Amino acid sequence: MQQKWSAVDEYLEKMLIPADETLQQVLANNQRAGLPAIDVSPTQGQLLALFVRMVRAKRILEIGTLGGYSTLWMARELPPDGELLTLEASPLHAAIARENLTFAGVADRVTVAEGPALETLENLGNHPPFDLIFIDADKPNNPTYLKWALHYAHPGTLIVGDNVVREGEVINPATTDASVQGVRKFIEMMGTNPRLTVTAMQTVGSKGWDGFTLAWVN
């Protein structure tokens, strides 16, 4: 099935997503630098861009930068006075992301904060709340990322959590996989929080079988 899922993704991308040399070059830069090929797909990147438009976001928080591919999709949708703060633990990934974002012409809107995301979040102080928060980092820490996301959210903030289905392992309560455990706690916390209206979608495609959560802060 993976071959067919990937073929459908390629078809949808060809039919719906305009060719973009800058985005393609960013992916090539990431590959050349040896970064893992775990960026969002082009159709997923376009979805993130649409989320930015739909909530009319001016301030975005991204937890997990990698090489800045998803960052770029979102940053392009910001108004001239908008800002995107993206958190990346790896010095190499952060350096590549800064190069990519400068190359793409959005560095004036984006701050790449290097270091463990939890430390950065603890030191944000009185930062204004974010309109859109994209959580796509180490899954064992997802529950704590959600706590910080809620701290820096306001009514109307959209919180997106990526990679939550984990090839179906999310339904396994006996799992010893720390990433799956983190995702299960993350989902439980959202489902029991009265501040949130939440749904989740399973996805199949070039990235395999996975999915994402959408949480609206009431």
Score class of each variant (00 low, 15 high):
84 L>K: 04
180 V>G: 07
67 G>R: 01
63 I>V: 15
132 L>D: 08
39 D>L: 00
101 L>P: 01
147 K>W: 00
95 A>P: 02
196 L>G: 01
162 D>P: 04
34 G>E: 07
99 E>H: 11
97 A>M: 08
187 I>L: 15
137 A>F: 11
169 E>Q: 14
50 L>R: 10
157 T>E: 08
218 N>H: 12
2 Q>E: 12
143 P>F: 11
181 Q>T: 11
88 E>S: 06
26 V>N: 02
214 L>G: 11
143 P>M: 13
75 A>F: 11
113 A>H: 10
64 G>A: 04
42 P>A: 03
61 L>V: 09
58 K>D: 10
54 M>Y: 15
189 M>P: 03
23 L>C: 07
211 G>F: 06
15 M>F: 12
161 G>T: 06
107 A>Q: 15
215 A>I: 04
79 P>L: 04
87 L>K: 10
21 E>R: 07
152 Y>T: 03
166 R>V: 05
205 G>R: 02
68 G>I: 00
24 Q>I: 01
124 L>I: 09
27 L>R: 14
97 A>F: 09
188 E>Q: 15
28 A>I: 02
14 K>F: 10
35 L>K: 05
168 G>E: 06
11 Y>N: 04
146 L>D: 01
104 A>W: 11
180 V>A: 10
53 R>V: 01
183 V>W: 09
80 P>V: 13
179 S>I: 02
41 S>A: 13
26 V>M: 13
16 L>R: 13
216 W>H: 13
14 K>Y: 12
216 W>I: 09
188 E>H: 15
98 R>C: 05
175 T>M: 06
46 Q>I: 01
203 T>Q: 03
108 D>S: 15
142 N>E: 02
124 L>F: 11
24 Q>C: 05
84 L>N: 03
165 V>Y: 12
167 E>H: 14
152 Y>M: 02
216 W>Y: 14
87 L>T: 05
79 P>C: 08
168 G>D: 07
27 L>Q: 13
137 A>E: 14
201 M>T: 12
36 P>T: 03
71 T>K: 06
188 E>P: 04
59 R>E: 02
187 I>T: 13
17 I>H: 15
163 N>M: 03
77 E>Y: 01
99 E>C: 00
114 E>P: 05
69 Y>S: 00
69 Y>Q: 02
93 H>A: 09
124 L>D: 08
197 T>P: 00
102 T>P: 00
36 P>Y: 06
97 A>H: 12
163 N>E: 01
212 F>D: 07
45 G>N: 06
24 Q>D: 15
158 L>Y: 09
91 P>R: 04
91 P>W: 14
189 M>F: 13
131 D>S: 00
134 F>I: 05
63 I>M: 11
7 A>Q: 15
99 E>T: 07
14 K>G: 12
218 N>T: 13
77 E>A: 00
22 T>D: 05
1 M>P: 06
197 T>W: 10
